[in-house]
Amino acid sequence: MINSDDLRFFRTVASNTSLAATARALNVTPPSITQRLQILENKLKLKLVDRHKRSISLTEEGVFLAERAALILAEMDDMHEAIYSQRNEVAGCLKVLAPLGFGRKYIAPLITEFQQQHQNLSVELQLSDNPDWSEKNSWDIIINIGELRDSTLKLSTLATNKRFLCASPQYIDKYGMPENPAQLRQHHCIALKENNEDVTMWKMQHRNTGSTESIRIIPQLSCNDGNVIKQWAMDGYGIISRSEWDVAKEINQGHLVRLLSDYELPQADIVALLNTDQRARAERTARFLTRLKEVIGAKPWYE
């Protein structure tokens, strides 16, 4: 008779391309993986895996077991979560997806703090500026900044977040301060390539008149890493458009100067996206969302 440990072991085997990769994932030796797989096959009197020179493939029976194992283990996790929920305890696995730079700076520290407070909880954090939205339902919470990719998810605003045009004092001393959006075409502009957005079209609205202007910049420098383009701007190489959360500190310290302050760029609010409504939300998700609102809502980038 096989048990839940066998199912978890085989799920790991099925999710890797070789027994060596499985051994690395479980931090054991390859011979021990081979031995354990043989014991499992002997228990079932079935061949589950075809071994190739540098890879493995599942037999028909192996595919069936992997699929059933995933369902059974998910049901067991749900059962454990339900038991803990009856006691108002936080347990299970909290899965969070967040943008790379923001997630590294603000979400990762929050997650370690939250997990340390709830010892029956494990947390999976993935950081990506170009996530696979087809897997949206596999996450408990998705942190999103700016344009929303999916309107079917439940939205909870964590903090308002403006976008600023800015450059270093050295750049302004050398090239001058643009007085209107059209003059941006005469300046060195830097683009951040992320989320498949049209990053070379800068749209802005005059604060007093409400008139809008769209300027197509021709960036001399571009990168998919926000830290890189911010450093380029501070080094005097050009003008950037960045989120308030990312440049507020540098503006306050004088390393960057905000440009065209009479104009506003589209907001890029920081939100949490969830695939369940409040009543169906697991305790771990509900409590972490509350903590997110407390910390991110206070705008720690101004501290």
Results as ranks from 00 to 15, higher is better:
residue 5 D to W: 03
residue 10 F to Q: 02
residue 12 T to L: 05
residue 24 R to Q: 07
residue 29 T to C: 03
residue 35 Q to L: 12
residue 40 L to N: 06
residue 43 K to A: 03
residue 43 K to W: 10
residue 45 K to L: 09
residue 46 L to T: 14
residue 48 L to W: 10
residue 52 H to C: 08
residue 62 G to V: 02
residue 74 A to N: 09
residue 75 E to M: 12
residue 75 E to S: 12
residue 91 A to E: 05
residue 95 K to W: 02
residue 97 L to I: 01
residue 111 I to C: 02
residue 114 F to Y: 01
residue 115 Q to C: 11
residue 118 H to L: 03
residue 133 W to L: 07
residue 136 K to G: 04
residue 137 N to E: 11
residue 149 R to W: 07
residue 153 L to Q: 09
residue 154 K to D: 10
residue 163 R to T: 12
residue 165 L to S: 00
residue 166 C to Y: 11
residue 167 A to C: 08
residue 168 S to V: 07
residue 169 P to R: 02
residue 171 Y to M: 07
residue 174 K to R: 11
residue 175 Y to I: 05
residue 176 G to L: 07
residue 180 N to H: 15
residue 181 P to L: 09
residue 190 I to Y: 00
residue 191 A to S: 14
residue 197 E to M: 03
residue 200 T to W: 02
residue 201 M to N: 13
residue 201 M to K: 12
residue 202 W to Q: 06
residue 203 K to V: 15
residue 208 N to E: 15
residue 213 E to I: 15
residue 215 I to N: 10
residue 228 V to K: 10
residue 230 K to F: 12
residue 237 Y to M: 09
residue 242 R to P: 09
residue 242 R to H: 09
residue 245 W to F: 14
residue 251 I to P: 02
residue 259 L to F: 03
residue 262 D to V: 08
residue 264 E to R: 12
residue 264 E to L: 13
residue 265 L to A: 05
residue 276 T to K: 15
residue 278 Q to G: 01
residue 278 Q to E: 06
residue 283 E to A: 13
residue 285 T to L: 06
residue 294 E to H: 07
